[in-house]
């Protein structure tokens, strides 16, 4: 069993429903986003196109972030999901430098959603999972996955551009789509072996 995701860029409309569903699920503080969607354009007028690239953590099979962690705060769970134990993290940020995908963010300060306002009841409850001076990143919604549910970004995607499943099973939707479209990881740095694959669009 190895959890993986396919993101179909032919279908993605860059709406960021994934980013906000992730926020709602994980309650990340302001400025901390497990998922980021980069919007950009290619070509010249009048044949230019608008493009988007959603970027969760790639959950590498061979994660460089894990190797550099001096306190073993980063670890690989069942199915290859990479998470961080905030109790063990000392905030050295070696992992941020090691990650080729800018998946990780350092929490300098727990920022509230409303600037110059106090934490709302939602923030008070949800921010317990985060600690100033530690590193945070996408966890493939491990709690949902353990309940048999897809990650929030996959569940919410309005164009069904995200598919989640078992990369080890050749019959799974993710495996079939990767084979059919020759989906490839973003920046296939030798050795990292990401679990997120993109269909080019």
């Amino acid at each position: 069993m190895r959890y993986g995701m396919v993101i179909d860029l032919k279908k993605c409309v860059g709406c960021n429903a994934c980013t906000i569903a992730c926020r709602s699920q994980n309650g990340t503080p302001a400025g901390i986003n497990f998922n980021k969607t980069k919007k950009y354009e290619v070509g010249r007028y009048p044949t230019a196109k608008m493009k988007s690239l959603p970027m969760p953590c790639m959950h590498c099979q061979n994660p460089p972030c894990l190797k550099v962690c001096p306190t073993f705060a980063t670890h690989q769970n069942e199915g290859g999901i990479v998470t961080i134990d905030k109790e063990k993290c000392i905030g050295c940020r070696a992992c941020i430098i090691a990650c080729p995908y800018e998946s990780r963010q350092f929490i300098w300060k727990i920022n509230n959603y409303y600037e110059n306002q106090k934490a709302t009841p939602y923030e008070k409850l949800k921010f317990r999972k985060f600690e100033r001076g530690t590193v945070a990143k996408c966890i493939f919604c491990i709690d949902r996955v353990r309940e048999g549910l897809p990650p929030a970004c996959v569940h919410t995607c309005i164009s069904e551009a995200r598919i989640f499943g078992d990369l080890d099973n050749p019959e799974s939707d993710v495996s079939r789509l990767i084979a059919l479209h020759q989906a490839a990881p973003f920046r296939g740095e030798p050795g990292t072996e990401p679990s997120v694959f993109y269909i080019n669009g």
Binding site: C15, I20, S24, Q25, K124, T156, I158
Partner: peptide, 24 residues
């Protein structure tokens, strides 16, 4: 405390999906 709002799986018209506004 309200801790999450998500699309309701299997139910029309959105069948579980939700846009960024709905998720917020």
């Amino acid at each position: 405390v309200v801790t999450g709002v998500e699309g309701r799986a299997g139910v029309p018209p959105n069948y579980g999906t939700l846009c960024p506004r709905g998720n917020s």
